[in-house]
C-alpha cells in the first residue's frame, strides 16, 4: 500500500516522464496520447469538483467541454478566414492567441454553467442527472444544426493556435501547455477541497439540512461549485480542440459526459487524482484494445463493474488502501 500523496506524485512523474522519454526516443504519437490524458484528465478534474466534492452527478458536462471546443473553433476559424465574428455594434475579430481563447472558453462555460446549474439544482437525484443530460442533448443538436460552423461535419483549424514563446506544433511543447493546465487544475481542486468553501460543499453533499442549520445556503454553495467545475471542463475543451485542430458536435455528446464520469469512477470518486488515473487507463485501453476490437468498450465496462463492485475507492483507493476519500 502506498500513501495517496506518494501515489499522486508517482502519477505526475509518469505523466511527465513518459512523453519526455517519447520526445527523446522520437515517438510523437506517444506524446499525443499523454497530451490527451492530461486534457481529458483536466476535464475530469473539473467534473470531480461538482460530482466528487459536491455530489452533483452531472451527465451534461460535455456541454462545457463542447463550449470550450467551439470557443476555440469559432475564434480560430474567423482568424484563419480573416472574417470578423461580428461587425456591429462593435467589431469582434477571431484570434489564434491561446490565452484569449482560453479566457473566452472559461468565461462562456462559467456563464452557461451558472444558467444550467441554477435550473438543474432545483431538482435532485435522478432528475438532476436527467436535466443535465437534456441540456447536453440540446447543445449537441444545436451544434449539428448550426451550418455557419460546420454543422454535423464540424470545423477544421489548419494550424494550431499560438502561445507566446512556444512552438505549439511541436508535440512536446503543446504537451507542456496541457500538463501545466492540468497541474493548475489539480492545485485549484486541492485547495478548494480543503478551503472553507470546500468544507461547506462537502457538507452540502452529505447533508444539506445540516448546512442550512448553520445558516449557510447549500444550493448557493453547490451552484458556485458547478460554475467552477464547468469552467475547468470548458478550458479542457478548448485544449482538446487545439490538440485535434478540429471541433465537432461530438464534443457535446452524452457519450463524452459519460466518459468523464467513468474516468472519475475508475480513478476514485472525490479523489484528487482520480480523473487523471481514470483518463489514463481509459486512453490506454482505447489505444491497446481499440486496435484489437471495435468492441473494446466491453472491457471498459467489465473493469468498471469490477471497480464498482470490489473497489469503491477506485484505483486510487485500491492502491492507497483507503476506501474513503476526504478527511
Amino acid at each position: 500500500m502506498i500513501r495517496e500523496t506518494y501515489l499522486n506524485a508517482l502519477i505526475m512523474a509518469l505523466l511527465l516522464g513518459i512523453p519526455l522519454w517519447a520526445h527523446v526516443a522520437g515517438q510523437p504519437f506517444t506524446i499525443t496520447l499523454a497530451t490527451k490524458v492530461a486534457i481529458l484528465g483536466l476535464a475530469g478534474v473539473g467534473l470531480n469538483i461538482a460530482l466528487g466534492l459536491g455530489g452533483m452527478v452531472s451527465l451534461g458536462h460535455a456541454v462545457f467541454f463542447g463550449i470550450g471546443g467551439y470557443a476555440m473553433g469559432i475564434l480560430a476559424h474567423h482568424a484563419q478566414t480573416y472574417t470578423p465574428l461580428m461587425e456591429a455594434p462593435l467589431l469582434i475579430e477571431g484570434t489564434k492567441f491561446m490565452p484569449a481563447i482560453w479566457l473566452v472558453a472559461v468565461v462562456v462555460s462559467a456563464v452557461v454553467a451558472l444558467a444550467i446549474g441554477a435550473l438543474s439544482l432545483r431538482t435532485g437525484g435522478v432528475y438532476f442527472i436527467m436535466i443535465t443530460l437534456a441540456f447536453g442533448q440540446m447543445f449537441y443538436y444545436f451544434a449539428i444544426s448550426w451550418p455557419a460552423y460546420g454543422g454535423e461535419d464540424g470545423l477544421s483549424i489548419y494550424v494550431r493556435n499560438e502561445f507566446p514563446g512556444l512552438n505549439t506544433l511541436v508535440p512536446i511543447q503543446f504537451f507542456a501547455i496541457a500538463f501545466v493546465a492540468l497541474s493548475l487544475g489539480l492545485i485549484l481542486s486541492h485547495l478548494i477541497a480543503r478551503s472553507r468553501f470546500g468544507l461547506a460543499l462537502g457538507a452540502a453533499r452529505q447533508n444539506s439540512e445540516r448546512v442550512q442549520t448553520v445558516g449557510l445556503d447549500p444550493m448557493r454553495v453547490k451552484l458556485v461549485a458547478f460554475v467552477i467545475s464547468g469552467a475547468i471542463t470548458g478550458l479542457a475543451g478548448a485544449l482538446f480542440a487545439d490538440l485535434n485542430r478540429f471541433v465537432a458536435p461530438t464534443m457535446f455528446s452524452w457519450h463524452l459526459s459519460g466518459e468523464l464520469i467513468i474516468f472519475i469512477i475508475l480513478g476514485g470518486i472525490g479523489r484528487l487524482f482520480g480523473p487523471v488515473v481514470g483518463a489514463g487507463l481509459f486512453i490506454l485501453l482505447e489505444h491497446f484494445l481499440g486496435g484489437l476490437s471495435e468492441y473494446w468498450l466491453i472491457y471498459v465496462g467489465a473493469i468498471l463493474l469490477g471497480v464498482v463492485l470490489f473497489a469503491r475507492g477506485g484505483l486510487i483507493g485500491a492502491l492507497s488502501g483507503r476506501e474513503v476519500a476526504h478527511d
Binding site: 485549484l188 485547495l191 472553507r196 470546500g198
Partner: peptide
Amino acid sequence: LGALGRDGGVMRFLLPA
C-alpha cells in the same frame, strides 16, 4: 462548519478551513 456558518465567509477558496 458551525463556526463557519456563524462567520459567514464561505466564498473563500484558497486557505484551508
